[in-house]
Design a binder for these strands. Structure first.
Length: 358
DNA sequence: AACAGCCTCAACCGCCGATGC
DNA sequence: AGCATCGGCGGTTGAGGCTGT
């Protein structure tokens, strides 16, 4: 037997709200509050609406100090950055953008930013004062010139300066920003814990750090890994996570150290060609096994896309600045790392074509 | 002007966790 | 402990408006 419906669907009005309904709901809540019971609210007011519908209408539309449309570039950046790091947790993202609702951001992402990332939009957006798509960057795929012809890298040609910034997409030692949440993560590994056998757990950890799994690469360094999550949760700060095979003396070890709000990847061992010597850096490790990285991004980036999501983690991602921000993620105040040019990089993907594609 | 296709976004749906009984 | 209820969340839908032909 299923769960009882929250309201009598037969006697509940659906569809767009009328101004009268809005006025009723708004005036009541402004006078009396929600009373902590949305389900009972419509009956008190005399609205033939589901309580959940009232809640949604209030939160997404009637609530004071809401902004609609006109996302600024800075908001774009924040959304991009947070989406890359935490995925589609719209309520969390919305908490960082005063006046924005999760629904708003979700819609904006799905209709604009996602396409902006891919450069799929066909025409200039309508009625968007702050929204301005510029085609200022070209992105090419080319062989890196660092002496390793086997590695591919993205070349950003920003602002048509012709100054190609060829970069290895995931350098051997890269410092990535730590995004502020969740401040506690299931930490999948400790040195003394023999139960480190859950690849999904480490995948999740690495995903939090911004990795990608395509499933296209088998990675021997992950073979036989013990990735069982430890009991409970550990504070995901100022810790080191050693990613490597405990069973192989010659295994490459990727060290993910989290200190002072920075994540550092480093690797050692004679199998490190998988990690950096061939130019793919730790990301190759990250590409080891099937993915649950923010599915929308995964979907946007084909599995054979050289370098995976590195274009989201280019140099600019490293050169970050901090935006101080209050957050709802916990009781402590924390910081967002604002990737200054992420969105412009996204814009730069306009006109990008995949290998073999015209 | 008419039509078709595209785009946006408000609203709905269903699931899940928390809470109370 | 088990169940019912509620709030909250993310995914999806569809009506209406806009644009291109």
């Amino acid at each position: 037997m299923g769960r009882a419906p929250c309201c009598d669907k037969a006697n509940v009005k659906k569809g767009p709200w009328s101004p009268e309904e809005d006025a009723k709901l708004k005036s009541y809540i402004e006078k009396h509050g929600t009373g902590g019971n949305w389900i009972a609210l419509p009956q008190k007011i005399g609205l033939k609406r589901c309580g959940k519908s009232c809640r949604l209408r209030w939160l997404n539309y009637l609530r004071p100090n809401l902004k609609h449309g006109g996302f600024s570039e800075e908001e774009d950046n924040i959304i991009c950055s947070l989406y890359v790091s935490i995925g589609s947790r719209w309520s969390v993202i919305a908490a960082q953008l005063p006046g924005r609702t999760d629904n708003d951001i979700k819609n904006y992402w799905n209709t604009r930013l996602k396409k902006k990332l891919l450069g799929k939009h066909r025409r200039e957006p309508r009625n968007r004062g702050n929204y301005n798509i510029k085609q200022e960057s070209d992105v090419n795929i080319g062989n890196s010139t660092d002496g390793d012809s086997s590695s591919l890298s993205l070349v950003h040609e920003n602002s048509r300066t012709n100054q190609q910034q060829q970069q290895q997409c995931w350098p051997q030692n890269i410092t990535m920003p730590v995004l502020p949440l969740p401040l506690t993560l299931p930490l999948p590994y400790t040195d003394h814990d023999p139960g480190f056998n859950d690849q999904d757990s480490i995948r999740k950890l690495l995903i939090k750090l911004g990795g990608r799994f395509s499933g296209d690469y088998y990675h021997p360094a992950l073979d036989g890994l013990n990735l069982e999550p430890s009991d409970g949760q550990q504070v995901f700060q100022d810790q080191q996570v050693h990613v490597g095979s405990s069973s192989s003396s010659s295994a490459c070890t990727a060290t993910v150290s989290i200190n002072n709000n920075e994540v550092q990847f480093a690797q050692s061992g004679d199998q490190c060609r998988y990690f950096g010597a061939q130019g793919s850096g730790v990301n190759t490790l990250l590409q080891g096994h099937g993915s649950n990285l923010t599915p929308a991004i995964e979907e946007m980036v084909p599995s054979d896309f050289p370098g995976g999501l590195e274009f989201l983690y280019g140099e600019d991602m490293i050169d970050h600045k901090i935006i101080e921000s209050a957050t709802n993620w916990g009781e402590t105040s924390t910081s967002i790392y604002h990737h200054n040019s992420l969105a412009s990089n996204c814009q730069g993907l306009e006109g990008f074509s995949y290998p073999g594609e015209q």
